[in-house]
Amino acid sequence: MCTPLAEEASRLDLGADLKTAMRRLAGSVSIVTSRDEEGQPHGMAASAVMPVSIDPPSMLVAVNRSAGLHAVLQHSGRYCINLLADDQHALLEPFSQSTLRAQRFRSGPWRDAWSERASPLPWLEGASAVIACIVDQAVDYGSHTLFIGRVTDVRVDPAPVELHPPLVWLAGHRARLDLHSS
């Protein structure tokens, strides 16, 4: 029978083991953006981004409740997912470190809505794709909130993916894809 201290230690070990295991899962990196009630842009680098459904079109973003973007998403109910290309890796540093917050929207060609359907959210010109969403559900789980957003607009870079491959992260480092056809 485990004591409460042993259970806590076991849970912490399991969490550390999971974190180590997840570093072996390659994933694309995005910048999720929104605007606060005063219209100021906010954003963060995110790898926990995934499509939920095509019908209805929806995307999920997992945001740590301690992240500055969390309260903004809860209040605004809108977000924009900017899928980064490999050559945009330099954008990660300001969007990954809170000490560089002031540099975030000075680090690239950020624009506002690209169509009548899109909300006036910051989007990155030159991103592989940009997906605007309205929060449909927010589910708290552990340290994060899962924001499920209904897609309101999509913009895709017309360049072939072979010329503009996605930014991929593996084991805490940038990884490169070999996109040759077989």
Rank of each mutant, 00 (worst) to 15 (best):
P4L: 08
E8A: 13
E8N: 09
S10R: 09
R11I: 11
R11S: 13
D13V: 04
L14D: 14
L14M: 15
L14P: 00
G15V: 06
A16N: 11
D17M: 12
L18E: 03
K19C: 00
K19W: 02
A21F: 02
L25M: 11
A26F: 05
S28E: 13
S28F: 02
V29S: 04
V29N: 01
V29W: 01
V29T: 00
S30C: 13
I31T: 00
V32E: 05
V32N: 05
T33G: 02
T33W: 05
S34L: 03
G39F: 03
Q40K: 14
H42M: 02
H42K: 00
M44I: 09
A45V: 03
A45R: 00
A46W: 09
S47D: 04
V49Y: 00
M50V: 15
P51M: 07
V52C: 05
V52A: 00
I54H: 11
I54C: 12
D55R: 12
D55I: 09
P57F: 02
P57C: 00
P57S: 04
S58L: 01
L60G: 06
V61K: 01
A62Y: 07
N64H: 14
R65G: 12
S66W: 04
H70G: 13
H70P: 14
S76L: 01
S76E: 14
G77T: 03
Y79A: 01
Y79R: 00
N82A: 04
N82D: 02
L84R: 07
A85T: 08
A85Y: 00
A85S: 13
D86T: 11
D87N: 15
Q88K: 08
A90Y: 08
L91S: 09
L92W: 03
L92V: 14
E93R: 13
Q97V: 14
Q97D: 15
L100S: 09
L100W: 09
R101H: 14
R101L: 10
Q103D: 15
Q103M: 01
S107T: 03
G108F: 06
G108V: 07
P109I: 09
W110L: 01
D112Q: 09
E116I: 03
R117L: 14
R117F: 07
P120G: 05
L121E: 09
L121P: 06
W123G: 00
W123K: 05
L124T: 11
E125K: 07
E125A: 14
G126W: 02
G126M: 06
G126N: 06
G126I: 05
A127V: 11
S128N: 10
A129K: 07
V130T: 11
V130A: 01
I134K: 13
V135K: 02
D136Y: 10
Q137G: 02
Q137A: 12
A138W: 08
V139Y: 15
V139K: 06
V139C: 06
G142F: 04
S143Y: 10
H144P: 08
T145S: 08
L146G: 03
F147C: 12
F147S: 10
V151H: 01
T152W: 01
D153T: 08
D153E: 13
R155L: 15
R155Y: 10
R155V: 10
D157G: 02
D157A: 11
D157K: 06
A159F: 06
E162V: 11
P165H: 09
P166T: 10
P166H: 08
G172C: 08
R174S: 04
R174W: 07
D178T: 12
D178I: 10
D178K: 13
